[in-house]
């Protein structure tokens, strides 16, 4: 019940951003649409978690975002360097690596793997329980995992476990 209400509020905010029309006709239909979506798919947003847990995770994501953005800029510059280098093939040393992550919850693991995909020279291939398989473009990128990112995600999303 609480999950559905929280989903309804989120959907209402999204509707206001989308719609921008506040006459009675559109507002009524907006509320009806939000109720429909919250009833049929509201549970999906929370995947069995309590609402407070999910809210804290979202706030943690907001704190983590700017740092991630800066890392993406750095990683893009690194890819730029490799792409524009005349002897590009000498710079590359692709390899598959596997390591164990300390993160517990699914959401934190998924965030971690998406961040890996977005940052320097690495792509997540699969997450199997706590084992992550990563395809790295260079040796230095492979060595830098899991690194600081995991600590930051643990601090942002799983405060009770650090």
């Amino acid at each position: 019940m609480k999950a559905k209400f929280a989903a309804f509020v989120i959907m209402l905010i999204f509707w206001v951003i989308l719609s921008g029309m506040f006459d009675a006709f559109h507002l009524t239909l907006g509320v009806i649409s939000c109720l429909l979506v919250a009833h049929f798919s509201g549970k999906m947003l929370f995947e069995g978690l309590r609402v407070e847990v999910r809210a804290r995770q979202i706030l943690g994501m907001l704190a983590y975002g700017p740092w991630l953005l800066w890392e993406i800029v750095l990683s893009s510059l690194q890819v730029t360097y490799i792409v524009l280098h005349p002897q590009m093939l000498d710079k590359m040393d692709p390899q598959l690596i596997r390591f164990k992550t300390k993160l517990k919850s699914t959401f934190a693991r998924v965030t971690f793997s998406q961040s890996i995909t977005l940052t320097p020279g690495t792509i997540t291939v699969s997450v199997h329980d706590d084992e992550m398989t990563v395809y790295a473009l260079t040796r230095s990128a492979a060595d830098s995992l899991p690194g600081e990112m995991e600590k930051r995600i643990a601090r942002a999303l799983e405060p009770e476990q650090t």
Partner: peptide
């Protein structure tokens, strides 16, 4: 850069690096 990488890089996996990061 992403497009040049898509054309220049040698295999599928490294092309994904260019596509995934630079484009985003």
């Amino acid at each position: 850069i992403g497009t040049i990488g898509l054309l220049r890089l040698p295999d599928f996996y490294s092309r994904l690096h260019a596509a995934g990061k630079c484009d985003t």
